[in-house]
Design a protein around this nucleic acid. Structure first.
Lengths: 147, 147
DNA sequence: AAGAAATATTTGCTTAGTCAAATAAATGGG
DNA sequence: CCCATTTATTTGACTAAGCAAATATTTCTT
């Protein structure tokens, strides 16, 4: 591909604008309904989906869009709110697990419906089947090419 | 649409992950090459594309993903760096224009090649023509449905 | 087995950006 | 024409998150 023309740029703009708009809307719904925000949610899902409902900080950081130190802060907050706890282990005493608590699971389960509605209403329902397929295919390729 | 199945969720995940990955990559390239970051860039393009290379703060805020107060801070920074200046006007003395300076134009023009390369390499080039078309169509619809 | 190198996580400091209140000027209604 | 309301922007106080340095522990290397 040589140079960017207006057409190609339009694809990029659509991507960036749609993302900002959808995320903003979903965040607003979550906050209006006193649910946990998205970054927090991502941490809790990652824990929920892990076999023992716990993950090493480094592992956890890979699941979310955060640096390791950013994750430390988030987990700190979550610990204060009682949604996770840190668990030291004898195997490797440098680090810690973040463990999902019962409260954390509850918060996470309570949040999902709002989040899911957002995904449906602001994103999926606007797309027809072809678009969904193409988006999934294209954007997955992009993601894989970058990790 | 009733309930979210795995398939549909995969579309959403692809969208979110691709966005985070591509933006992160582009920001990194910009920073490595000592170019201005994306939010800053967005402000400068908006000004550059406006008829007189200047916009009221409120107008400008609509072009970028920032609240009005967020914009105040960014323009403050940009003013410190000499890329824009604030210009009061007699017509309406409540507010001010942000005006692109010669330096600002230079910074913006110098940044574009890096940005454009990122868009090409990390995003467009990975997609085939169908995917590009579908993404443009679908995501534009989404964006329009939300403004 | 001792020191060097690597790994896991946290901390201190700083920047970016938000919200709600403050300020300032313009406008509309009686 | 004056006051109440609205509009434009900034400010103060705060939260989120990043980077680089610090800390703690493990794993190599010889």
């Amino acid at each position: 591909m040589k140079r960017l023309d207006e057409h190609q740029l339009a694809v990029w703009r659509a991507f960036v604008n749609a993302h900002a708009a959808v995320i903003e809307r979903i965040e607003k719904d979550l906050s209006d309904q006193r649910k946990i925000p998205l970054t927090t949610y991502d941490v809790l899902v990652a824990l929920y989906q892990s076999p023992d409902k716990k993950l090493r900080m480094t592992e956890l950081a890979k699941h979310v869009v955060l640096t390791r130190s950013g994750l430390t802060r988030v987990v700190e907050r979550l610990e204060r709110e009682g949604f996770v706890k840190r668990e030291r282990t004898e195997e490797d005493r440098r680090g810690a697990f973040a463990v999902l608590t019962r409260e954390g699971k509850k918060a996470f389960l309570a949040t999902w419906p709002t989040y899911a509605d957002g995904i449906k209403n602001y994103f999926l329902s606007v797309l027809d089947e072809d678009e969904r397929a193409a988006i999934e295919r294209g954007l997955s390729k992009i993601y894989r090419s970058l990790i």
